[in-house]
C-alpha cells in the first residue's frame, strides 16, 4: 500500500510535467469541453423562450445552470482511455508497460487525475464568464450541496472503471472505434447531455436509471440543482456503489482474459 502511494506520487509528478508541455493544447481541448453543452444550452433556452419561458420545469436560466454544471461534471468524470488503449495495442506500446512490476491501470489513473485538475485552471475562468453571460440559477437543498462533491467523485470512479473495461475490447479487435461510438452516443442521451432526463418520455427515464450512464454524469448535476427528492438521492448513491463494484469485477475478469489473448497472438 505504501509502495503504491509512492508510485502514485512519482507518477503524478511525471504526468504533470508531461501535460504542462501542452499548454496550448489545453486551451483547445477546453473548446471541446465547453462547446457542446453551450450549444444545447442555447438550443434549450431558445425552446424555453418560444414556449413562453418554461419547458418541463426549466426556464432559460435553469437550463443555463443545468448545462454549466453538466459541463463541469462531464469534464471531471471523462477519460480518454478508449483511444489510449487502441493506440497502445496497435503501436505495441502496451508491451513495455506489461514488463513493469506494477499494474498499468495506475499510470492511467494518475494521468486522468492530473489532466482533470490542470484543466480546471483553464475551465473555471471560462465557466465564470459563461455564468455571467447566461446567468444561471439553482435552488439546491443543503444535503444536495453536501453530497455533490462525493457523488462527483463516485461518478468519476465509475466512469473510469467502465471506460477502462470497455477499452480492453482493443485486445480482441484492432478497431474498437465502433464500440467507442456506441458508448459515447448512449452516454450522450442516457447521461442527460442532450437534455435533462426529465424531458424524455417515461420509459426512457426508466432505462436510463437501469444503465450506468446516468450515474456517471447527470445524477450529481440534478442533485446540485435541487431536482431530486431525498429518496432519489439515496437511490442514486446506491446505484453508483453497485455499478462500481460490478465494474471492478468485470475489469479484473476481462483484463485477465485480454492478457491471455494478447500474449497468444503477439505483442
Amino acid at each position: 500500500m505504501r509502495h503504491l502511494f509512492e508510485i502514485y506520487r512519482a507518477q503524478l509528478k511525471v504526468t504533470t510535467a508531461t501535460q504542462l508541455q501542452y499548454r496550448v493544447a489545453l486551451v483547445i481541448w477546453m473548446i471541446g469541453i465547453v462547446l457542446e453543452p453551450v450549444i444545447y444550452l442555447v438550443v434549450w433556452a431558445t425552446v424555453a423562450r418560444s414556449k413562453g419561458g418554461d419547458v418541463g420545469g426549466y426556464n432559460a436560466r435553469s437550463f443555463a445552470a443545468y448545462f454549466l454544471v453538466l459541463m463541469l461534471v462531464n469534464h471531471l468524470t471523462q477519460t480518454w482511455v478508449f483511444f489510449e488503449f487502441e493506440m497502445r495495442i496497435r503501436q505495441g506500446t502496451l508491451s513495455p508497460l506489461l514488463l513493469k512490476p506494477v499494474h498499468p491501470v495506475h499510470a492511467d489513473v494518475a494521468q486522468n487525475v492530473t489532466f482533470k485538475l490542470l484543466m480546471l485552471v483553464v475551465l473555471v475562468p471560462v465557466m465564470v464568464v459563461l455564468a455571467l453571460v447566461f446567468r444561471p440559477v439553482i435552488h439546491p437543498q443543503w444535503w444536495g450541496l453536501a453530497l455533490f462533491a462525493p457523488t462527483v467523485l463516485l461518478a468519476g470512479v465509475l466512469r473510469f472503471l467502465v471506460e477502462w473495461t470497455l477499452g480492453l475490447a482493443g485486445f480482441w479487435s484492432t478497431r474498437v472505434s465502433a464500440l467507442n461510438q456506441i458508448y459515447y452516443v448512449a452516454l450522450l442521451f442516457f447521461s442527460g447531455q442532450v437534455a435533462p432526463l426529465s424531458l424524455f418520455p417515461h420509459f426512457f427515464q426508466v432505462i436510463a436509471s437501469v444503465l450506468p450512464f446516468r450515474w456517471t454524469v447527470s445524477y450529481p448535476v440534478e442533485l446540485l440543482l435541487g431536482r431530486l427528492s431525498g429518496r432519489d438521492a439515496l437511490l442514486g448513491l446506491a446505484a453508483q456503489a453497485g455499478w462500481i463494484l460490478l465494474s471492478l469485477v468485470l475489469l479484473r475478469v476481462i483484463w485477465r482474459a485480454g492478457l491471455r489473448k494478447y500474449s497468444a497472438v503477439g505483442a
Binding site: 512519482a10 507518477q11 511525471v14 508531461t18 513495455p96 513493469k100 506494477v102
Partner: peptide, 28 residues
C-alpha cells in the same frame, strides 16, 4: 529488462531523469 531499438519506453515530453525516478519507485 527488454530494450527494443524501434520502440520508446521513456515518456516523450519530459527529461529522462524524471522517467528514471519513476522507474526507481516502480522497481523498488
Amino acid at each position: 529488462a527488454l530494450v527494443m531499438g524501434q520502440r520508446n519506453q521513456l515518456a516523450w515530453d519530459i527529461p529522462a531523469i524524471d522517467s528514471f525516478e519513476l522507474n526507481r519507485v516502480i522497481y523498488r
